[in-house]
Design a protein around this nucleic acid. Structure first.
Lengths: 206, 206, 206, 206
DNA sequence: TGTTAACCGAGACGGTACGTCGAGTCTTATA
DNA sequence: TATAAGACTCGACGTACCGTCTCGGTTAACA
C-alpha cells in the first residue's frame, strides 16, 4: 500500500490557514455552500489549491474547521475573560432555560453564523462521519451544559430523580432545532418560552 | 420577455417517468445522493438527459417526486384499501402516541427509505425552497394527524385546553427527528416510549 | 474491460475543428511548442477542453493534424489548380535538384511553417509513434518525388543503374535536414547547390 | 539590478552531483524524458530540489551534463589509455570512413546512450540554445575529426582540393543522422558502407 | 578551534496545467 | 412534437510538478 507521508504540522503556514478560514466563511455567506468551491476558496485566500488539499480532504472539513475557529473567536469576544461555557444557575430552572434558549434563538438568526452552520448541518445529515464530527465538536459541548444544569436541578428537587437529563434536554432543544433545520415553524422567544413551560410541566392536566 | 413554452404534459411519456423515478431511487440507495448525477439517472433509466431537464429543474426535484411516488406506493401497499392517513385513537393517548412513534422508528430504519429521505432532508436544510416543499408534501400531512389526535385528547380532557397542539407534538416528534438527523443519540422503542412519558407528564415533580 | 465508445464522427463540429487547428498553429508560432497547452488551445479556440480530448489524445496529435491541414491549404493555394506534388523534370537533373532544394530552403525559413514543423520533428525524435506518423504523412510523399525523379534520371543515363534512389536522395536531403534540425551549419542556396554538385559527382577526383 | 550571488563551486558536494547524474540518466532510460521530472531526479538522488536548481536551470541542462559525464566515462573505458578522439588513418579513406561509421551505428543502437541522446537531440531541435550547446559539446568534436581526416585525404590526393571538408562530411554523417532522428530508414553496416561509396564516387556515371 | 557562512536534505508554499467528470444547452434522427 | 442519443461549452475536480522559499543540520574556510 502506498501511503502518503503526513505533512509536517510544524512547518505549516499560519497565515495561509487564517486566510483559508476567512475565505471559506466569506464565500459560504456570500454565495452559499454549494457554490463555494475549493478553487474559489484557494483563489480568494491567495493560496495554492494544494495547500488546502494538503491539510483537509474535503470542502466540508475545511468549513468545519473554519466554523469552529469562528465559534471560538466569537466565544472569546463574547465572554471577554468570563467562562465561555457557562450556563446560568440562578436556582430558577425555568428562567435559566428560557434565558439560554433565547440566546440560542439570537444565534440562529445571526446571518454570519447561519449560513455556515446550516451548510455543516446539512452535510452532516448525509455524511455520517461529518455529522458525528459536527456533533462532537459543536453540539455536544453545549448539550453537556444542559445535562449539568438539569442534574443540579435534580439535586434541588426541581426535576424528578428518575428523569434522564440527556433525554430531557431534548424536549427543549430538539423542537427548536427542527424548526430551524426543517422550517417546521417560526422561531421566537415566545416559542421557546412555551417549550420550557410545556416540557417542565407536561401537557397533561395535573 | 421570451418564455420557454411549457412542455405538453399530455404527450408525456409515462414509461420514461417511471424509469426515471426508479433509477433515481436506486442510485441514491446504491451510491448515495452526492454521487447520484442527472447523467447517471438518465443512463440508468435509458432516457435522454433532455427528458429529465424538460420536466424537472434539479436533481433534488427529481428525487423529491421520485420519493413521493415511492411513499404513495408504499402507503397503498401497507394499508391495502384502508386509510393510509390514519392515526389510532383507542382513547389511551399515551398508548396511541407510542404506537405511532414506534412505527416511525421502523420507518426511519428502513434502508429503502432512509437514503432518499436523508438526502432530501439534507438538501432542504440548505435550500429553503426545497425544504419548504419537503415540509409541505411529506412532513406536514403526518404532523397534521398528531394535531388532530391531540385535539381529540383535549376534548377527552386528557390534555390541557390551553396547550397548543402544533407545539405540543414537537415534544414527541422533534427529539426523534434530531436523533435521526444529527446522530445525537440512538433510536429505539424504549427511547420513544420515554419521550411520550416525559412530554405528557413533564419532568418536574407533581 | 471498460472501453469508451468511439465518438460519432458524423456529428462532429466542423467549426470547432477549424478553430482548434487555427488556435494550435497560432499558439505554437507565438509562444512556442512547450508553452502551448491544451487549455490554451481550447481557450483561444473558444472550445471546451473536452472537445479536444474527445478527438485527439495529445497535444502532439492535435498539432500534427493542424499542421497537415495547414500544409494542404498552402499546397492548394500555391499550385492553384496545378499538381501540388510535382517535381520539375527539365532533363537537367542537377538543375532540377537545385530548384527543388532551393524551394525547400525557402520553406524551412518561412516562420509560419518553421515553428510547428520543428515542434513536430522534435516530438517525433523522442516519440517513435509520432515520429513515424510524421514521416508517413509529411516526409515520405516528398521523398517519393525524389525517388521518381532519380529513376527518370537513371532511364536517361544520368545516374548509374546500380544506385538505389532511396539512398541517393539522402545525399541531398539529409545534410539540409540535419543543418535545420541540429544547427550544424547555415542554410543557403549556395549550400544546397554545393550539395548537389558533390553528391552527383562524388568528392573523389575523377 | 539585484543579481543572485553565484554559488561557491568549491563547496559543492561531489556526491550530490554524481547522484544527480546517475538518477537523471536512469530515469530517462526507465521512464523516458518527458516523464523525467526535476522532483523525480531529486527524490531518486536523495537530494533537495534546491540543490538541482542551484547548479542548473532546467531539466535539459541537467541531462546534458549527465550525458556528457556519461560519454566521458564511456570514452575512457573504451580507449583505456589510448586517445579517445582518434580517427583511423590507414591511408585507405573509404575503409577508414566505413570503420568509423560502423562504430557510430553500434553506438546509436546502444540503449544506454540512445534514450538520453535522443532526448537531448529532440530538445535541441526546439530549443536553439540547447541545440547549439549539444552541437558544440557533443557533435562538433566528432565532426572535427572527419574534417581532419578529409584534409589528410586531400593532401594524399584522394579527395579533390576544391571540396569543402565541412560540407563533404555531411554526405556520410547526415543521412545516418536523419535515419536515426526521423526513422527515414533502417540503420545497418551495409547502409553506411553504401553511403561511403556513393559519396566518394558520386552517383553520376564516370 | 571556535565561528560563521555556504551548502545541503527536506518539504511547504503559490501557481499552472493536466486529464476527467458532470452540468445544462443544443442538434439530429426516429417514432 | 416528445424522445434517445450524444456533441457542445463551461467550470470544478483532485493530482503532478514547477520554481521559490524557509527550516534545521552539517561542513569547510577563516578568525
Amino acid at each position: 500500500m502506498v501511503k502518503k507521508p503526513a505533512p509536517d504540522t510544524a512547518r505549516r503556514s499560519e497565515k495561509s490557514r487564517r486566510a483559508i478560514y476567512d475565505a471559506a466563511i466569506a464565500l459560504v455567506v456570500e454565495v452559499g455552500y454549494p457554490k463555494t468551491t475549493i478553487e474559489g476558496i484557494a483563489a480568494r485566500a491567495g493560496v495554492g489549491k494544494q495547500t488546502i488539499y494538503r491539510w483537509w480532504s474535503s470542502k466540508a472539513e475545511v468549513l468545519m474547521d473554519a466554523f469552529l475557529d469562528l465559534s471560538e473567536q466569537a466565544a472569546q469576544e463574547a465572554t471577554a475573560g468570563g467562562d465561555p461555557y457557562a450556563f446560568p444557575d440562578t436556582g430558577d430552572l425555568a428562567a435559566d432555560l428560557k434565558t439560554v434558549l433565547r440566546a440560542t434563538v439570537d444565534e440562529l438568526k445571526n446571518p454570519r453564523f447561519e449560513a455556515p452552520s446550516r451548510a455543516l448541518a446539512a452535510e452532516g445529515v448525509v455524511n455520517e462521519q461529518l455529522g458525528r464530527a459536527f456533533l462532537t465538536r459543536l453540539l455536544e459541548p453545549s448539550l453537556q451544559l444542559y445535562v449539568e444544569r438539569l442534574r443540579s436541578a435534580q439535586d434541588a428537587g426541581q426535576v424528578r430523580r428518575d428523569v434522564d437529563p440527556r433525554i430531557a434536554l431534548e424536549l427543549f432543544v430538539s423542537p427548536l432545532a427542527q424548526r430551524w433545520l426543517q422550517y417546521t415553524g417560526p422561531i421566537s422567544y415566545e416559542y421557546t418560552d412555551t417549550l420550557v413551560d410545556y416540557a417542565l410541566n407536561g401537557i397533561a392536566p395535573r
